[in-house]
Design a protein around this nucleic acid. Sequence first.
DNA 1: CACAATTTAGTTGTGTGCAATACGTTTCCA
DNA 2: TGGAAACGTATTGCACACAACTAAATTGTG
Lengths: 156, 156
Amino acid sequence: MNATSGKAPDSLLKLENFLCFAIYSTANAVTRAYQPRLAALGLTYPQYLVMVVLWEREKQTVKSIGEKLSLDSGTLTPLLKRLENAGLITRRRDTVDERQVLIGLTDEGRATRKRAEAIPLAIGQAFGCTLGEAKDLRAELMTVRDNLIASIDKAN
Amino acid sequence: MNATSGKAPDSLLKLENFLCFAIYSTANAVTRAYQPRLAALGLTYPQYLVMVVLWEREKQTVKSIGEKLSLDSGTLTPLLKRLENAGLITRRRDTVDERQVLIGLTDEGRATRKRAEAIPLAIGQAFGCTLGEAKDLRAELMTVRDNLIASIDKAN
DNA sequence: CACAATTTAGTTGTGTGCAATACGTTTCCA
DNA sequence: TGGAAACGTATTGCACACAACTAAATTGTG
């Protein structure tokens, strides 16, 4: 629902009532807030997310990374090539199933994790809410996200 | 805060704890959910937001639109040119202050509003939450957004 | 008034997102 | 087992976002 006051019938088309705009605009603010810190590591925000996924478990396929981040190969393939060129990850075809490409970490990629550990706390402060509030908000967003994805899938 | 359980020290770097990822990923889902409906109007999601701003008040400067959507001229200028080419808006230099460009609606741009009125309700259903929940979530996100923007400004 | 600082758009370059499509590999099953 | 269907990745094309920069107009100040 686009959180309207429910008064005027046209209030549904007012920007200030749009939940979707709040999400869109906050997402832009997130990447802007991360940018200076990540630039020090030579990473963009989506690249950082890929690294986070790999720091949790090395040796994943493109598909596995894509499922965790909800991104397709059209986005990931060029992004992964940039991370490879930066010397942070490795890319090689699986010899058993040659459809798959296995992504791994280089020593430099592993080492970057240490330099990234300070970032979540700093960003957390910028959010300006308590840990509990953040946890609740995160849960609500993930529910909304899953609902949206379900409605998209249902339409196809 | 990246909503962690607060147990292990490295849990701050786990994707499942990231509030920022929830925001990022939900924003992507929002644009995907809007896409088929907006495509019928020949609009992208950011273009739709610009039209919403103009439906609320015609004759705005690029700067005014940018402030409402938190977008700069690097994003808006090409987007507005596409809307102009699509015949939905007009662009002309202000004769009083020639730094400014005034954006207005064409008849077709105004007419498109009617065709867009059904969208918020349909998307609202896809969110799968009540009007009250949406309103609360929107308010929390806008607070987080403003905090993020304030922290970015403070750093400069 | 002169002119430096500010304001407003536009331009350029990089990196996403995603639809549509292509292509080689694997799986399924008649 | 042969071939169609499904799968995993890559490619192409378009449209954002945003940093960095440019250019023109206006404002502020001595």
